[in-house]
Write a protein that binds this DNA or RNA. Structure first.
Lengths: 233, 233
DNA sequence: ATAGAACTATGTTCTAAAACACAAATATAT
DNA sequence: ATATATTTGTGTTTTAGAACATAGTTCTAT
């Protein structure tokens, strides 16, 4: 069916890790079952308690994975950048989603039925190891995050988030501005604090000449100091 | 070599999940490479920053996985009961350990070289899925734990830990006493609070007739109320 | 272009939990 | 058995950060 949107995507270049590990037959199956879906800014990609069906691969845009906790307070659990996979954990655990995902900004996501992936990796040790490694890395990060979010003070947590955002999404052409446009509320939910505290602490960082802010654009002036603030908590 | 300690252990009954999935040849290899090691109470099993080498399976006893955070403050990340596997995450992530493990009480651990396990699961989809599922479940728990530890108040966190200990290690013959003998400090490190607060909050629970305490023995009197305290935070 | 909503900023008050201090009770070692 | 260390229990003080209040600012939609 020439002309169908999914045929226009070159999966071999957009799904680099997985594509490389597949046989020709598996690649055909993947081509026939992958869907590419576009999400607008702030649109929900999946919801807590839903049944997981697809492996998702973020082609472009930015995604947050979050959880609503006590009194509906939201906590951002992790953020996704291109090209990263997400949405597969709950399927493998045979559970409904315990998190939700939404688009920070408009983005393109490739959806591949998890049944297909499971079938592939049962006979493909490399692919199995690929998922085992991703899960293992994420679990290590989650363990670290428990300690950081519970033991560091507000300044340390915010500094850590800024560094984390920089390392995840990089800098703009000026080599200083963090390449993401986040509301203070999202910054707060990422760092486990109230919006007021995120705002106040950002101002403090500005006064201390560690960063500058221009609306939502954050420029890192003194990364060493920021890292030190993050480290000492 | 009859008489060697490792030959005395019947791996088919002590490693139920993995054993079931192996071929006869793999079972022979496993028998030849598995070691059984005994740890005394409070002995360290592995340390943060060490290189992971073995898959560990707890045959009996109780183990804590913990991390030292800001100012050396320790946080218990998860606890292991027989028969559970641990120690494999860091190997799969190709990282040094980010946690340490020690014996709550004297225990027996079976060590299997990770190289062997990796080799097995490359050709064994069921075994690969077994590890994928364990990691996926643990990652879901870690995500939930981030929210619980950061958003719940002291009472909610302690109530949650008590229920968690009960569900992990069960009750003694009286059907009420939690089957683990923990110092208040460990209870605090599990629940992200100071020892004083663990002691004080335990006393409060006693006054409210939710539990009774006799030294380190904790008896759950009103589990419904305890669950409610945990839920509302 | 303008109204309404959402976001940002800052000051003030309040509270949960940490920090500290000390005594009593237990455990451990010699 | 006795001394020493560790753990438990409680009261007091201090503080980080939440909650609340209010105003200015910037989006967004029609």
């Amino acid at each position: 069916m020439p002309g169908k949107k999914k045929d226009l995507i070159d999966l071999s270049s957009t799904l680099p890790d997985i594509w490389r590990m597949l046989t020709d037959g598996e690649r055909d199956q993947l081509r026939g079952n992958a869907r590419v879906i576009h999400f607008k800014k702030n649109e929900l990609i999946y919801l807590e308690d839903e049944t997981p069906r697809d492996l998702m691969c973020l082609f472009n845009g930015k995604v947050k994975i979050f959880k609503s906790g006590v009194g509906g307070r939201s906590q951002i659990i992790r953020i996704i950048r291109p090209v990263q996979y997400f949405g597969y954990r709950a399927y493998f655990a045979r559970e409904p989603y315990v998190t939700a995902a939404s688009a920070f900004e408009s983005c393109t996501v490739c959806m591949i039925p998890m049944e297909l992936i499971e079938q592939f990796l049962r006979n493909n040790g490399d692919l199995a190891l690929f998922f085992i490694q991703m899960l293992s890395v994420d679990l290590g990060i989650a363990d670290q995050r428990v300690v950081n979010l519970t033991q560091k003070h507000v300044r340390g947590r915010l500094a850590e988030s800024l560094i984390f955002l920089k390392e995840s999404y990089g800098l703009e052409e000026d080599g200083a501005t963090i390449n993401i446009y986040l509301a203070r509320e999202d910054l707060a939910n990422l760092s486990n604090m109230t919006t007021s505290n995120a705002i106040r602490t950002l101002s403090n960082f500005v006064n201390e000449r560690v960063i500058t802010i221009d609306g939502r654009k954050i420029k890192i002036i003194d990364e060493d100091r920021l890292r030190k603030i993050s480290r000492i908590g």
